[in-house]
């Protein structure tokens, strides 16, 4: 119960951060990605701020050891680079560049731009389900499914 309540509060804070930073606005994301046009560098600062704090949080979590509400830290440990990672990141980048939407912002703006966001999220869920249907063997079977970050 406490784990669920904390996840809700933390999700709320994540969404607020996306809204405050401008990262939840696809037009602003595209303006950041449009480096040869009227470039808006804001999102570089969003990333810098987020990475700096998450790096500090990670060091703190590692030093503390056991999380407050869970038996252990559940953090990806793989360090190898493989074709699945490269192909997945490239496909993701293509989709992100086409609409300016990635998973967090898409969920956060469901009530702000309902028609567009529901369409995108439905397609995104379909894409995730499609991935579950594809036999792992055909996709360079080096990774354990479900071990996602």
């Amino acid at each position: 119960m406490a784990k669920t309540a904390s996840a809700f509060a933390v999700g709320l804070l994540f969404g607020l951060g996306l809204l405050v930073s401008g990262m939840a606005d696809p037009a602003k994301v595209l303006a950041f990605l449009d480096v040869t046009g009227r470039w808006d560098p804001s999102l570089a600062l969003v990333m810098a701020g987020a990475v700096a704090i998450s790096a500090a949080g990670y060091r703190l979590a590692r030093r503390r050891g056991r999380p407050l509400l869970a038996p252990r830290l559940d953090v990806p440990t793989r360090r190898d680079l493989d074709g699945r990672l490269f192909a997945g990141a490239a496909i993701f980048g293509l989709g992100w560049g086409l609409a300016g939407l990635c998973p967090g912002p898409a969920l956060t703006i469901l009530t702000l731009a309902p028609a567009e966001a529901v369409t995108f999220v439905a397609a995104m869920v379909a894409g995730m389900l499609l991935f579950r249907l594809v036999p792992a063997a055909r996709l360079k079977p080096t990774a354990a499914l479900g071990a996602d970050t």
């Binding site: 933390v10 951060g17 990262m23 804001s42 701020g49 987020a50 949080g57 990670y58």
Partner: peptide, 21 residues
């Protein structure tokens, strides 16, 4: 607002790690 919002996102990620692991 970019740095402030980014810090909130990083803070949220840190809290999920420290609370729920």
């Amino acid at each position: 607002s970019a740095i402030l919002g980014g810090a909130m996102i990083g803070g949220s990620a840190s809290l999920l790690l420290i609370l729920n692991g």
